[in-house]
Design a protein around this nucleic acid. Structure first.
Length: 903
RNA sequence: AGGCACGUAUGUCAACGGUAGACGGCCACCCUUACAAGGUGGAGGUUGGGGGUUCGAAUCCCUCCGUGCCUACCA
């Protein structure tokens, strides 16, 4: 058999995915067990415009590990893929494309433009889905969904109509975030607060004259240009400085409008001058105050962030910042500019294009989230559902969000998205309906105009778990089978935008939560701790990491990252690339020595009749299976990876293969040789199954080459299907508790310690690797003699000893020997005539004694503390006593060794 | 402004009340017939500073210093 010395990830990555997909291994239908438990995940739909970044790769790896693990456990498993239509981003992509052709979207008109977006989607969209195949993501492509699919659009209309009928959705004027560049309203979650840069933020103190007096009232503002729309000045009702002014009128400079002084609790007397100019048309707080005091709205800034005619003829058409300068200049001329101070505050920007948001009053559609979210709030408060992982801090973050829900601005002034299912007749009456026909029926006329706006992209996302599974068709088999989903895996920045809203819609429309668990992944930073971003250009492209180190190695790193914030570091990937190579070469060894052997054989008969190393590796394997299963189910992926890495490398490669090597490589084809060969193959095969959820490609590549695997290796749920046998459908090893053998592990520890101590002596005394030594082992009359005797050939091989003598004591050992103390009072001596520098050897042993004595001091001090002995659990005290006695024993034997070495 | 995290070996991270570990890097020796992407052995930490609770603290509490993140209607 030709097997290359070095693992080539590319080859394996290209070989298996297409077959898995073609043979339906990813679809839940592959599971033929009608009574199988169900496991389901819906993917957080990436934007159709998106391409894979490290954050996606992280989430996908976690989801794939969970999916593959449960599939191997025999669950009817679904991981549903799909994409989001990503309203603004996608529209802008096409607008940009048109711009290159010298066109605007208005040149095309709505219909042609939308067609063009669909065309763009077909040609350029969905890059990320192709990239997911590269990742090995075992998603069911037959159920791929897009938020603008006909069915999902129907779900969106159904949601809208029902919520409208229930009074949760309303249309009306409100203060909204307007992006003057994207020309649309935005929800509160689509804007960011950004602190002003030093010197950028100013607080302007403007004086407003009191009517019929020469007194002036000073207000402080960061946005002087809005004064043109002021309709009042507010002071705190308890502020004595201004008590006499409440109810009086001020003369608004420049525009010469009379405006009242009103009293409002909102005003903080401590801030600025304690008097606030009120511009109800251009600020949320002022809008609220305006409602309280019945103030008129004067709109002075339009949707292009330019001044309107109502701002005055000399301002009309000016950009908001030019108007600001001009207002300030005028105040200066009028002698009403008291001062300008540097002031740091937060500016609200469009989270997409970073343009400064203009708060505007406009008529939009809103959803009363507080009412909609009540059931979710109760669920998390009373039952702690969904379960957040990590629970701290996310459960609290989620809960406090639900406690402070505000109305959600639903409408967007875009063309790409779900059109709002509302129609107006000629009198402007509104009809909300599932279809135009329904609206016409309700209106009693055909002369209807549909609302031109579309819905926020997150509106359809909120339905994702139910709409992708068939809602609103309540008898949809997928909905019945796979809903509620098992877990949602996502990043923390969309807990509000998305996670909470899916929970709301799920509860409202199905009465069931959308998912049992929510796993929040960590954030991956660059090596300087900076968030990776396109604009900074500091992102690490997962595909190039795949190319360099292989997908499996990258997945291992990502799985270990889990919910931790991490600075990306290629070193880690490199180390797992080396691990993949180790796996490859271990398998290579097993396969090169596989003649006469078969997976599943070699461990016949009662375990107690097996050799120590066999009882030991089976114990380690079962323990690892148990630990890995537990770790995955607890979302502790790093623990699973740790357990797998060390089981495979340390236990299997470093010890088991080495201990088995002489038997396995024996030249005569005896039954004993073949049994030994079968045993390493069997352990390897089990290890590949354990590794598969994390490393799908290399495990499949190797598994396919093992002699003796086939349909019977598959989990019972898949055995009847006619797929090519694959490790991805083999059963995940379940730990047999009786096979976890503490005694075998303890005995093996003694052998390992012996070998390690001898190796240590060899290195420290510069004994050449090629030089054979003699060993004398003193067992102090306890049971260790039998153990060492039973493993004599292995001990010889691993320590490169030509002969080994095991006796009760080391009395007869030549003076020129290097020695070491072992656990249980045993000792080992390596006679090294001519190689021993007595002074050096004494120094070595003295150092060792000192080390042990230091430890002993700590332990003895603790044991001497009566309060420890009294109050600590008996088992802890016992443990410490045992340790003390072990250290004591070692020190004694080392001291004897010193004596034996003489002066 | 409030809230929440975090600070462990040169780097990236584990351990979350009972001997501080892993991987990488580093040092020494070795191309020992699966693997130099390897083997063997080794050095390296009073867990940011200070205080407290406890028989026992990296872990719980307080405080200071430093670093992130989130929310917010102080103009």
């Amino acid at each position: 058999m030709e097997i290359p010395k070095t693992y080539d990830p590319k080859q394996a990555e290209e070989s298996h995915y297409a077959r898995w997909e073609r043979e339906g291994c990813f679809a839940p239908e592959i599971n033929m067990d009608a009574g199988a438990p169900v496991y389901s995940i819906v993917i957080p739909p990436p934007n159709v415009t998106g391409s894979l970044h490290m954050g996606h790769a992280l989430q996908h790896t976690i989801m794939d590990v969970l999916t593959r693990y449960h599939r191997m456990r025999g669950f009817r498993t679904l991981w549903l893929p799909g994409m989001d239509h990503a309203g603004i981003s996608t529209q802008l992509m096409v607008v940009r494309q048109l711009h290159k052709e010298g066109l605007t979207r208005h040149d095309l008109g709505r219909e042609k433009f939308t067609e063009r977006v669909w065309k763009w989607k077909e040609e350029y969209g969905g890059q990320i889905l192709k990239q997911m195949r590269r990742e090995g993501a075992s998603v069911d492509w037959s159920r791929e969904r897009f938020t603008m699919d006909e069915h999902l659009s129907r779900a969106v209309r159904e949601f809208f109509v029902r919520a409208y009928e229930d009074g949760l959705i309303y249309r009306g004027p409100g203060m909204i975030n307007w992006c003057p560049k994207d020309q649309t309203a935005l929800s509160d979650l689509e804007v960011d607060k950004e602190p002003t840069k030093p010197g950028e933020g100013k607080l302007y103190y403007l004086q407003y004259p009191l009517k019929g007096s020469d007194r002036r009232l000073t207000v402080a503002t960061t946005r002087p240009e809005t004064m043109l729309g002021d309709t009042a000045v507010a002071v705190n009702p308890n502020d004595e400085r201004y008590a006499d002014l409440v109810g009086k009128s001020l003369l608004l400079p420049i525009v010469n409008r009379e405006i009242p002084v009103v009293a409002d609790e909102f005003v903080d007397p401590e801030f600025g001058t304690g008097a606030v100019k009120v511009t109800p048309a251009h600020d949320q707080n002022d809008y609220d105050m305006g409602l309280r005091h019945n103030l008129p709205l004067v709109v002075v800034i339009d949707q292009n962030a330019q001044m309107t005619l109502d701002a005055g003829a000399e301002f009309e058409g000016l950009d908001r910042y030019d108007a600001r300068a001009k207002v300030v200049e005028k105040f200066g001329e009028l002698g009403l500019l008291e001062k300008v101070a540097d002031y740091e505050f937060a500016i609200t920007k469009c989270s997409r294009c970073r343009t400064v948001i203009e708060p505007l009053v406009s008529t939009q559609w809103f959803l009363k989230q507080a009412e909609m979210g009540r059931a979710s709030l109760e669920l998390i408060r009373e039952k702690h559902e969904p379960r957040f992982v990590p629970e701290v801090p996310y459960e609290k973050v989620y809960t406090s969000w639900l406690e402070n829900l505000r109305d959600w601005t639903l409408s967007r002034q875009l063309w790409w998205g779900h059109r709002i299912p509302a129609w107006y007749d000629e009198e402007g009456r509104v009809f909300v309906a599932r279809t135009q026909e329904e609206a016409r029926g309700a209106a009693g006329t055909d002369k209807l105009t549909q609302d031109p706006d579309v819905l926020d992209t997150w509106f359809s996302s909120a339905l994702w778990p139910i709409s992708t599974l068939g809602w609103p068709d309540e008898d949809s088999p997928d909905l019945k089978t796979f809903y509620p989903t098992s877990v949602l895996v996502t990043a923390r920045d969309i807990i509000f935008l998305w996670v909470s809203r899916m929970m709301m819609t799920g509860l409202r429309f199905t009465g069931q939560k959308a998912f049992d668990d929510v796993f929040i992944t960590g954030t991956i930073f660059d090596k300087h701790g900076q968030r990776m971003s396109k604009t900074k250009g500091n992102g690490v492209d997962p595909l190039s990491v795949f190319d360099k180190y292989g997908v499996d190695a990258t997945r291992l790193v990502l799985a270990s990252i889990g919910s931790t914030d991490t600075r990306w570091n290629d070193n880690q990937v490199e180390s797992y690339r080396n691990f993949a190579n180790k796996i490859w070469n271990a398998a290579r060894f097993c396969l090169l020595n596989s003649e006469g052997a078969q997976v599943g054989k070699g461990f016949e008969g009662e375990p107690k009749t097996w050799a120590l190393q066999d009882r030991w590796i089976v114990s380690r394997l079962n323990r690892t299976a148990r630990d890995v299963g537990r770790a995955i189910e607890a979302y502790q992926f790093h623990e699973a990876v740790y357990a797998l890495y060390h089981f495979f490398w340390d236990d299997f490669c470093d010890w088991y293969i080495e201990l088995s090597k002489s038997d396995v490589t024996a030249t005569d084809a005896t039954p004993a040789r073949d049994a030994a060969r079968s045993r390493v193959l069997t352990v390897l095969e089990q290890a590949l199954r354990l590794l598969h959820p994390f490393m799908p490609f290399i495990t499949e590549e190797l598994w396919q080459r093992l002699p003796g695997v086939g349909a019977e290796s598959l989990h019972a749920a898949y055995r009847e299907s006619d797929v090519t046998p694959t490790v991805m459908l083999a059963s995940f090893p379940q730990a047999g508790e009786t096979l976890i053998d503490e005694r075998a592990e303890s005995e093996m520890r003694s052998v390992i310690e012996l070998v390690s101590r001898v190796r240590n002596i060899r290195t420290e005394l510069n004994v050449k690797p090629s030089e054979e030594v003699r060993l004398v082992i003193g067992t102090a009359g306890n049971g260790l003699g039998e153990i060492f005797n039973a493993s004599l050939p292995q001990i010889k091989r691993l320590t490169r000893a030509r002969d080994v003598a095991v006796s009760d004591s080391l009395a007869e050992v030549p003076r020129a020997s290097a020695r070491a103390a072992l656990a249980g009072g045993a000792e080992v001596a390596v006679p090294l005539e001519g190689l021993i520098d007595f002074a050096q050897e004494r120094a070595r042993i003295t150092r060792e004694i000192e080390k042990l004595q230091k430890e002993s001091q700590k332990v003895e001090a603790q044991l001497a503390n009566p309060q420890f002995v009294e109050r600590a659990p008996a088992e802890k005290v016992e443990e410490l006593r045992a340790r003390a006695s072990d250290i004591g024993g070692r020190v004694r034997s080392l001291e004897q060794m010193l004596e034996a070495l003489g002066e």
